[in-house]
């Protein structure tokens, strides 16, 4: 079935290293997205401000355009139109952070907006100043809503980074193809085993993270 190909030489290690390339890109993009998203989301929570309008436009672009289209625009389009010669990795991180920032900002903004005004008023009446209100009353509640959802963003990011093979980055799918090609004569049916293993590798990378997100969501409900 083709599984034996992966046991030959360093094939399995190569495959895992390919997954590593994809995971590295997703982790970098997640970190940038979360940091930038926190700032953008807080600014966007001021209704009827310039920030809100900019945020809406950003979010709409990301919601309508497939990430692969954005990837093509940055990787192929920017080099032609703006003379930026980005490496594929830089283009990928730029696009995924652009996308992730909008999603994260939306999560932050809706978490902030969902805190009822009575919470602010009660803390005021208990003599908290604004800093204390934020630190002791608002942020803990926002955090509980935010953490599971941002963990969920990590799994979406991991899944989306599989697209980078389409702009020529050698990650796990590309490595898989190379292994199949190299063993074409010895094991012509390697494709099934190799792609099944890649399928399971992605599952193994995402499943624990999405379980954690679901667990925290349940734990902090109400």
């Amino acid at each position: 079935m083709g599984f034996e190909v992966l046991l030959k030489g360093k094939n399995m290690i190569r495959l895992l290293m390919g997954l590593g390339v994809a995971l590295k890109l997703s982790i970098l993009s997640v970190v940038i997205s979360i940091l930038a998203g926190l700032v953008t989301g807080m600014l966007a929570s001021f209704k009827k401000s310039v920030f809100y309008i900019v945020f809406r436009v950003h979010l709409e672009i990301v919601r309508i355009m497939p990430q692969l289209v954005l990837l093509f625009i940055v990787y192929f389009g920017f080099s032609k139109a703006a003379g930026w010669n980005l490496t594929a990795e830089a283009a990928a991180i730029l696009v995924f952070s652009f996308w992730g920032t909008a999603e994260m900002a939306d999560l932050v903004r809706s978490a902030l907006v969902s805190i009822p005004a009575s919470q602010y008023e009660s803390s005021r009446s208990l003599g908290f100043n604004s800093l204390q209100t934020y630190l002791y009353v608002i942020l803990p509640q926002v955090g509980r809503r935010l953490v599971p959802l941002s963990i969920n963003l990590i799994t979406r990011m991991i899944k989306t980074t599989s697209l980078v093979m389409m702009i020529g980055i050698v990650e796990v799918l590309k490595t898989g193809q190379q292994i199949i090609e190299a063993n074409r004569y010895q094991s012509p049916n390697a494709a099934f085993g190799v792609f099944a293993v890649i399928f399971l590798l992605y599952f193994a990378a995402c499943y624990p993270v999405s379980r954690l997100s679901k667990y925290l969501e349940k734990k902090w409900e109400n």
């Binding site: 079935m1 899944k159 989306t160 599989s162 494709a191 099934f192 992605y202 599952f203 499943y207 999405s210």
Partner: peptide
């Protein structure tokens, strides 16, 4: 769980390039 935690690209590769060997 299996399909929510894997990317479509990987699923398509399995269906299109993997399954014919089986």
């Amino acid at each position: 769980e299996l399909f929510r935690n894997t990317p479509l690209l990987v699923q398509l590769f399995f269906l299109y390039y993997g399954l014919p060997s089986a």
